[in-house]
Design a protein around this nucleic acid. Structure first.
Length: 570
DNA sequence: GCCGTTTTCGGCCCGACTGTTTTCAGTCG
């Protein structure tokens, strides 16, 4: 898969064009195409081989030619030429906050700033400050940004972002009291994107300036980036950017819509509005000077004859067309989840003994759960031998005898071994209530073939974290997801959405493909500690981003329904 | 550079905040 490489090079192209002062529309065309390829479910090399690059929205003749050149040679000649006349570290320089393409070009031309070190030198010797349009404050801002650049997180995991949102909102709620009518997350946090660039929070209030000031007093704030009457922006721990918008009640819905995004979704929406004679901004939807909606979010959509769309769908991946046709699916919700089907105890590498884990899980209101500790080959995780597994099964059966209205399924997370066989024989697996099969080793050894082999085993209910990716740390196996999904649809094996914040595997895009093909998915927390149980929300959010409905998700089944489903493949 | 139920040419989403400016450019989202 070269999708990411193509995305990278198109974004670099956009950067260098912007640096050269090319018109914004052209720059935007490159970024738009890059985004379409990032969202692409298919392998771009496959499309290329079938001469179908032009099917990608935003990819016209010129970009087809450039992508073709890149896939053939690994280079784009025009890009190389542009780069030859640009700073050596252009892309790093453009990542410095407050140091945009115009300033970079200016500093390059006048002062020969090519690298981050050059920039630092130009700040230190005062030459940057002498450029036209530069003053002491701008230089100080750039200097501070440069200092923070190394430390700043480029992307924040949704797990961490969710925690920060809760902490900031609790602080504001406490300090502002009655002056705060409502607080809600917006932006990519509300859309449950797997990583977010910054954290957006919306406050409904008639005391905007005061609420924004309170944000700047949050204890973890190390830098105030801006603080106006309706918008404030701060950096926490020199790392995490939090943006707060203070909105009056009559515009709160419009602001929610506007600041939830995504940008691509909003651009489409505003284009549509414009064609129909409306204008949408964060204050409302307008026909001429007349405001026709904005108090509630659905007024914006309703004015355009669109169904309201769950935030997780708002990526311009077809949701606007679906809404126009009144065909927005009813997505799975956290409340629909009746069971967590992949959890570990102290019998392998979990933190809690069986009884304690069951106790924690019951408190979440589920009706059943599956304990799936590691199998014997997972030495690093204290994997179970056959004897220990069978003893655990007996313990679980004994525990069930004492439980009312709750059932613990005796399961296993069985390793898919390098040769494609499973870590336990069918004879053992047959005695279990639930089987998750996962790859934990030999990632480069035919992961597709091994996963397909595991799916052929009648006792395997779920493939755990199917691609093995670790967000921002490991790309995942080179796996042919189309074949896996086809097999899942055929055999009735479910594919996991592992809810751990650093996995979220399947990803939203793969969920969408699986669900479209008719495969079942299983949303599990892979809990090793009680605090992991709440990550179910992230898994559900990811599934919703993939347009999964309740009936697509086996965790929404009652125990009877789950057993009936198992019978079909066992 | 892309695209077409107004268009194969002329459009292309919208606004807040800051800093350096006496009216606006740059940056950001």
């Amino acid at each position: 898969m070269k999708n990411n490489d193509v995305v990278d090079i198109l974004e670099k192209f956009a950067d260098v064009l912007e640096f050269k002062g090319e018109v914004g529309f052209k720059v935007n065309a490159y970024r738009k195409a890059a985004r379409a390829i990032r969202d692409l479910g298919d392998d771009i090399e496959k499309l290329w081989g079938e001469n179908r690059l032009g099917d990608i929205p935003g990819v016209g003749k010129a970009l087809q030619e450039k992508i073709d050149q890149f896939l053939r040679t690994g280079h784009i000649r025009q890009l190389d030429e542009h780069l030859a006349a640009a700073p050596k570290e252009l892309f790093q320089l453009l990542q410095i906050q407050n140091f945009g393409p115009k300033t970079a070009a200016h500093a390059y031309k006048e002062l020969g700033v090519e690298t981050l070190d050059d920039l630092q030198a130009a700040i230190s010797d005062g030459s940057l400050a002498r450029l036209a349009g530069m003053g002491p404050k701008r230089v100080a801002n750039i200097s501070k940004s440069l200092e923070l650049h190394a430390r700043a997180e480029k992307e924040i995991s949704i797990g961490l972002a969710t925690l920060i949102v809760a902490e900031v909102m609790a602080f504001l709620q406490e300090k502002a009291g009655d002056k705060l009518l409502r607080l809600s997350p917006a932006g990519s946090v509300r859309r449950c994107k797997e990583t977010v660039h910054d954290i957006d929070i919306l406050a409904e209030t008639n005391y905007g300036e005061e609420v924004i000031r309170l944000l700047t007093e949050f204890p973890r704030v190390t830098r105030v980036l801006s603080a106006g009457a309706t918008k404030g922006s701060v950096l926490l721990d020199d790392r995490y950017q939090v943006d707060l918008r203070a909105i009056q009640p009559e515009s709160y819905g419009a602001a929610q819509q506007y600041f939830t995004g995504s940008q691509a979704h909003n651009v489409r929406l505003r284009e549509m509005a414009k064609k129909q004679g409306y204008k949408i901004n964060e204050w409302g939807i307008f026909r001429g000077d007349e405001k026709i909606g904005g108090k509630d979010e659905d007024e914006i959509y309703a004015a355009l004859d669109l169904q309201w769309m769950p935030p997780e769908m708002r990526e311009d991946r077809g949701e606007i067309e679906a809404a126009a046709a009144q065909q927005i699916p009813e997505l799975v919700e956290l409340d629909d989840i009746k069971a967590d089907l992949h959890m570990h105890t102290t019998n392998s590498d979990g933190q809690h003994p069986l009884e304690q884990l069951v106790d924690y899980v019951r408190r979440r209101g589920y009706s059943h759960m599956a304990v799936c500790d590691h199998s014997r080959s997972a030495i690093y995780a204290n994997g179970l031998s056959e004897d220990r597994l069978l003893r655990l099964v007996r313990d679980i059966r004994a525990l069930n005898a004492q439980l009312d209205n709750f059932v613990v399924l005796a399961g296993i997370e069985v390793d898919i071994l390098p040769d494609g066989s499973l870590d336990f024989s069918d004879d053992i697996l047959r005695q279990l209530d639930f089987v998750v099969a996962s790859i934990h080793s030999a990632f480069k050894t035919d992961p597709t073939g091994r996963t397909l082999a595991a799916m052929e085993n009648r006792y395997v209910d779920v493939i755990g974290h199917p691609t093995g990716r670790l967000i921002a740390r490991r790309q995942g196996f080179d796996i042919d997801m189309e074949r896996i999904i086809a097999a899942a649809t055929r055999n009735g094996t479910a594919l996991e959405v592992n809810s751990s914040w650093d996995r979220l595997d399947l990803s939203d895009i793969n969920v969408r493909k699986a669900v479209q093909a008719g495969a079942r998915i299983s949303i599990n927390t892979d809990t090793h500690h009680e605090k992991h149980l709440s990550m179910m929300a992230l898994g559900v959010g990811t599934a919703r981003r993939g347009w999964a409905r309740k009936q697509d998700v086996i965790n929404t089944f009652t125990l009877d329904q789950l057993r009936a489903w198992q019978k079909r493949h066992r």
